[in-house]
Simulated scan of single mutants.
Amino acid sequence: MSSSPQRGRGATSNPDNRYTPIHRTAEDDGWQREADAPLHTVLHPLPAKSLISYNNSPDIPFSRSINPYQGCEHGCVYCYARPSHAYWGYSPGLDFETQIIAKPNAAELLRKELAKPGYVCEPVCIGANTDAYQPAERELQLTRQILQVLDEHHHPTYLITKNALVERDIDVLARMAERRLVKVMISVTTLDKTLARHLEPRASTPARRLEAIAALRAAGIPVGVLVAPVIPALTDHEAEAILSAVAAAGAQSVSYILLRLPLEVAGLFRDWLQTHYPDRASHVMSLVQQMRGGQDYRPGFGQRMRGEGIFAELLAQRFALARKRLGLDQASLVLDCSQFKPPGAAEQLSLF
Rank of each mutant, 00 (worst) to 15 (best):
V124M: 10
M305L: 13
H155V: 09
S332E: 15
P117I: 02
S2Y: 06
T143P: 09
D236Y: 09
L326I: 00
L199F: 15
G30D: 02
L159H: 10
L150S: 00
V182F: 04
R209H: 01
L150Y: 10
A136R: 01
A196P: 02
Q148E: 14
R325E: 11
T275P: 07
P5I: 02
R111A: 09
A196W: 01
A241N: 14
L243A: 07
P45I: 07
S50C: 11
V188N: 08
M1G: 07
W272Y: 05
I52H: 06
G8C: 14
R18I: 07
H276F: 15
L349K: 14
H276W: 15
V120Y: 05
T25W: 12
T194D: 15
W88M: 07
H153N: 13
R202F: 01
G309L: 13
G309Y: 06
A266D: 07
T25S: 13
P232N: 12
W272E: 05
D28G: 07
Q303H: 15
L147T: 08
F340I: 01
D36V: 11
P61N: 13
T143R: 09
E139K: 06
H23F: 12
R202S: 05
Q148F: 07
H23L: 03
V166C: 00
P201W: 11
I101G: 00
S286R: 14
T190M: 03
G8N: 14
V254C: 07
T161W: 02
H23C: 03
H85E: 00
A203P: 00
R280K: 15
H237C: 13
I231W: 03
A106V: 05
R209T: 00
D36M: 10
H74W: 01
W88L: 12
S338K: 10
H40A: 11
G220I: 04
E139L: 14
A132L: 09
G10V: 04
L109M: 09
R270L: 12
H44L: 14
P232W: 06
V246M: 08
A215V: 00
G127K: 02
L199A: 04
L114I: 06
V246R: 04
L226I: 08
G8F: 13
L226G: 00
R64F: 10
T205H: 06
L314C: 11
I242L: 06
L234F: 08
G93I: 04
E264I: 08
G224N: 05
A26Y: 07
S63P: 08
S3W: 08
R144L: 11
G71C: 02
E113Q: 10
Q32R: 11
E313M: 09
D29N: 14
P104M: 10
E73Y: 04
L261E: 05
E152H: 14
L147I: 02
K193Q: 15
P123K: 03
V223M: 01
G30L: 12
Q339I: 03
L335R: 04
L109Q: 03
L268V: 04
V246K: 05
M285I: 08
G89D: 03
F340T: 02
P299R: 08
I310D: 13
D329I: 02
P343Y: 12
L142N: 03
A37L: 15
R292G: 08
P232E: 10
R270T: 03
S253F: 10
L114D: 02
A136H: 03
A107K: 04
C72V: 01
Q145T: 05
L195E: 10
P5W: 10
E347I: 00
R260Q: 15
I126S: 08
K116W: 02
P229A: 08
D171Q: 09
